[in-house]
Nucleic acid binder design. Structure first.
Length: 281
DNA sequence: TTAAATGTTTAAAT
DNA sequence: CATTTAAACATTTA
């Protein structure tokens, strides 16, 4: 589930928590989820936590631990309080491990990191050198060298695709998934169904801006799942209440009041405001 | 009961 | 051959 902003949020949270700690123990409850020899990272110290596209990395020196949360992956760090990121579920404040827990890491100070994944699409793997592992991934959309011309050239690889579908191709741009593709189109006032080749340069510029705004807003709000700290008192509210269109089927548009419409595009739920987003066809 | 869910890969169809 | 679309993966919840 998590897209770039969700993974970025987890990265920022874990950086503050686990850098400097040593991995004391790794408990693999779902062997298919963990690729590599878990024993090889025991006793290793966490040097850094990073992100590339939707992949979270933990730098252990000679080795790196990579995480991909796919649709329903969730990371819960517990050191007395809890820091949670990824797929939001009602049971994330309850007893851990639960039935979705796949891997448990225990650190030198007794704190624990739980990797939960309801649908089991996600994975954790141990790698040596990163090398050209990410060669197929497109540029990071929030880097300063990501210009609108750059964006246009990459996306034109799919000139006959609906623009929203093309946005989700990871080899074109890194980190955009279904939520932010929808939000980016809304921000740019562009109908998600319009074909890539139909866009004018001014639309390319506003789509480029729209993508970056959606992702930055996502990070600002702590991700769509609102990764957050949970204390003994518990916490409320972590959902997508900030989104303009995603999941807002039949809600009034926050900009103009028109009812948000849901359609299917490339097999995925797609949301748009029929008034704000210049309708095509 | 059927449909859909924040992703990626592979197969099938243009 | 290149590009686009659909299916598969596995599970839960509306």
């Amino acid at each position: 589930m998590p897209e770039l902003p969700e993974v970025e949020t987890i990265k920022l949270g874990l950086q503050k928590k686990i850098v400097g700690l040593t991995i004391e123990k790794v408990e693999v409850l779902a062997p298919k989820t963990f690729i590599g020899d878990a024993r090889s990272i025991q006793g290793k110290k966490v040097l850094n936590v990073w992100r590339k596209a939707k992949i979270l990395g933990i730098d252990l020196g000679s080795l790196s631990l990579l995480f991909h949360l796919k649709m329903t992956g969730q990371l819960i760090y517990d050191d007395g309080k809890r820091f949670i990121g990824g797929h939001p579920t009602p049971d994330m404040r309850d007893e851990m491990p639960n039935r979705s827990t796949r891997v448990i890491f225990e650190f030198s100070d007794g704190s624990k990191l739980y990797f939960n994944d309801q649908r089991r699409f996600g994975w954790i793997r141990i790698v040596g050198e990163i090398g050209d592992l990410f060669k197929k991934l497109g540029p990071e959309p929030l880097e300063k060298d990501f210009t609108w011309q750059n964006f246009k050239n990459n996306l034109l690889k799919h000139k006959s695709m609906p623009v929203k579908v093309a946005l989700m191709d990871q080899s074109v741009v890194s980190g955009i998934g279904n939520i932010y593709a929808n939000e980016a189109c809304f921000n740019a006032k562009i109908d998600p169904r319009i074909r890539v080749s139909q866009l004018s340069d001014s639309e390319w510029q506003s789509l480029h801006r729209g993508v970056r705004k959606a992702l930055k807003d996502g990070i600002k709000y702590g991700g769509a799942s609102r990764a957050h700290f949970v204390d003994a008192q518990g916490h409320k509210g972590y959902f997508l209440d900030y989104a303009y269109v995603y999941g807002k089927d039949k809600h009034p548009c926050r900009k103009c009041g028109t009812e948000i419409k849901k359609i299917q595009l490339g097999g995925r739920g797609t949301y748009l405001c029929p008034k704000c987003q210049k309708v095509v066809e």
